[in-house]
């Protein structure tokens, strides 16, 4: 059962004080676990608190009650073992692609030699196929390229749990599937725990082992967990030919439509 105990979210409640003094309960009693090599997506309508949930796991926000543990250790603050990929990329605009990744590597691998750090940086730039753009600044890159840097930076720190907060949300419809395929290809070769926030059903089913569907806020909680037993490696266009895919997709959409 160690796999189930890798990341556990136990009865997490998050509420904010409203100006009139009453509580606004965003998340109400979330239970969720992510296995050591499991890709889990959390899906829900905008404002259902799914981003709040991932930020609690990242340690950027504190739950009002309940707790989150990673490998049995309680999460109280941000840490590089839970590196995040941000929706808005969060690249530092005064640093090149290489320097952005290097900054993260420098912070996390303090004891590594310079040669080791350079090799980690180069390896991850290559992994996201950005070697020709390695010395460009973020404003010279397209949205898709920027997010590839975000992914490379997160992976370069070798986190135990990778957090993806709507990583493809800001991308155009043509770039998004390409990047989804790239990320899932990388993941299938280096399996690890991933928690991804999304509002795109196809993205969630295509990429995940498990899709967690949330009810709406206030008092949002987990409505349904959908296992995705589709075989890997997955390819978006092949997957779309299968009937299992459509069954799963309809199941997810039915759920989400009930909470419109």
């Amino acid at each position: 059962m160690t796999q189930q105990q890798f990341l556990t979210i136990e009865n997490v409640v998050k509420s904010f004080k409203k100006p009139d003094g009453s509580d606004f309960v965003v998340l109400n009693g979330i239970h969720l676990s992510v296995g050591e090599k499991e890709y889990v997506s959390v899906i829900g309508h905008s404002g259902c608190g799914k981003s709040t949930l991932v930020r609690i796991v990242a340690g950027l926000e504190k739950p009002t009650s309940g707790m989150v543990t990673l490998e049995g250790k309680r999460i109280t603050k941000p840490g590089a073992d839970r590196m995040m990929v941000f929706q808005g990329y969060a690249l530092l605009p005064w640093l090149t692609v290489r320097e952005n990744i290097r900054l993260a590597v420098d912070e996390v691998f303090k004891k590594a030699t310079v040669a080791e750090k350079i090799s980690i940086v180069n390896k991850h730039i290559e992994m996201v196929k950005l070697t020709p753009a390695a010395d460009k600044y973020p404003h010279e890159l397209s949205g898709g390229m920027k997010q590839r840097v975000g992914v490379a930076r997160a992976l370069a720190t070798r986190p135990k749990l990778l957090l993806l907060d709507e990583p493809f949300g800001a991308l155009d419809a043509l770039t998004r599937p390409k990047l989804q395929q790239q990320v899932i290809d990388i993941w299938e070769n280096h399996r690890q725990a991933v928690m991804m926030i999304t509002h795109d059903v196809d993205e969630a089913i295509f990429m995940s082992d498990k899709v967690v569907m949330m009810t709406n806020s206030p008092n949002a909680t987990i409505g349904k967990v959908l296992d995705i037993p589709l075989p890997r490696p997955r390819h978006a266009h092949e997957l779309r030919e299968t009937t299992e895919y459509y069954h799963l997709r309809n199941e997810a959409l039915d759920f989400l439509e009930n909470y419109q």
Binding site: G79, M83, G88, A90, E107, V108
Partner: peptide, 14 residues
């Protein structure tokens, strides 16, 4: 300063 920049730094335990 965008909150995200500082969050990156926090996650990296800077």
């Amino acid at each position: 300063v965008p909150a995200e920049y500082l969050e990156v730094a926090q996650v990296l335990e800077m």
